[in-house]
Design a protein around this nucleic acid. Structure first.
Length: 288
DNA sequence: ATTGTATGTCCAA
DNA sequence: TGGACCTACAATG
């Protein structure tokens, strides 16, 4: 769940629930207790997210920085608050609801400068208004690294995880091993625009849905609908299953300790190298 | 009831 | 490069 859209969604939710009023902050588990005491009872001024990082601003130098990692979760329920169950790292209690944070990789109190430093290490976030795709392109277009690596590099693009990576590459019919410097400018422009639209949709719905209506398996009969991860996808976690476009079994390999999924036919680099590139415009990212 | 796996990142070896 | 983190859920018995 926690790719960039999840954190932006949480930032919006927490702002709606808690911003502008005092919040009771505690750490039932204890690991965040000393820091929680410093913001307990203060007014939450605002929240924001950059990539997979979430920030709760209680003051210029009182910022709670959260990274969910692989299995961190925020849960919420209406008041009254129940006894904490399990390892609750941080509990926030507001006027109408309370929220429990569990399993996060990072939950720490930082200064404004430290928060800025975290953001300084991050690349362009497609969900932020201040994102500059030109800077990401500058990195990509001079890198020999494969796009599979570059898209997951948070210092290049912040917020893309394993699902958006696989789906974006598929939607643009790009071989995951294609070196960044071999990507054409027009392809990058199309990918960035598509990524912005896909991730905004993810913020809105809370799911990652990438399959165009014309490829809906229910309609084409290519495969049964999956929907396992709260969304319909082309490649992610579909190893061995028929490609929703061409029927070829989806391939799978371990790439830098992460699972990489792609369609060996639709995303074959052979066409491109053969120089017929102009003949097949990047797959139109019919929005989902 | 138990086991396996994961949408992420850091750190030690 | 492998383990740690230590949750949630699906698959297995």
């Amino acid at each position: 769940m926690p790719e960039g859209h999840t954190l932006h969604r949480l930032a919006e939710l927490h702002s709606r629930r808690y911003a502008g009023r005092p919040v009771a902050v505690s750490s039932p588990q204890g690991r965040f207790a000393a820091s929680a005491a410093l913001v307990d009872g203060r007014v939450l001024e605002r929240t924001d997210a950059h990539g997979k990082h979430l920030f709760h601003h209680y003051g210029p130098d009182l910022v709670v920085h959260v990274h969910l990692g692989l299995y961190g979760t925020f849960g919420e329920a209406p008041l009254p608050a129940a006894e904490p169950v399990g390892q609750v790292r941080m509990r926030m209690v507001g006027a109408t609801h309370y929220t429990d944070l569990r399993g996060a990789t990072a939950c720490e109190l930082v200064t404004g400068a430290e928060a800025a430093a975290v953001r300084g290490r991050l690349g362009e976030d497609p969900l932020r208004d201040d994102a500059d795709p030109e800077r990401a392109w500058a990195r990509i277009s001079r890198s020999r690294a494969p796009l599979a690596t570059l898209l997951m590099d948070q210092s290049v693009i912040a917020g893309v995880g394993n699902v958006y990576r696989a789906e974006l590459l598929f939607r643009h019919r790009i071989d995951p091993q294609l070196p960044g410097r071999s990507l054409r400018r027009a392809q990058w422009d199309a990918m960035w625009g598509d990524l912005v639209a896909l991730m905004r949709e993810g913020v809105r719905t809370g799911r990652i849905d990438t399959v165009a209506p014309e490829h809906d398996p229910e309609r084409t009969g290519r495969a049964p609908r999956q929907d396992r991860h709260g969304g319909e996808v082309y490649a992610y976690r579909r190893a061995g299953l028929p490609c929703l476009v061409c029927g070829t079994p989806i391939a799978h390999t371990a790439h830098a300790a992460r699972n990489l999924f792609w369609c060996p036919k639709c995303q074959s680099g052979r066409r491109r190298r053969a120089g017929v590139s102009r003949a097949r415009p990047a797959a139109r990212p019919a929005r989902s």
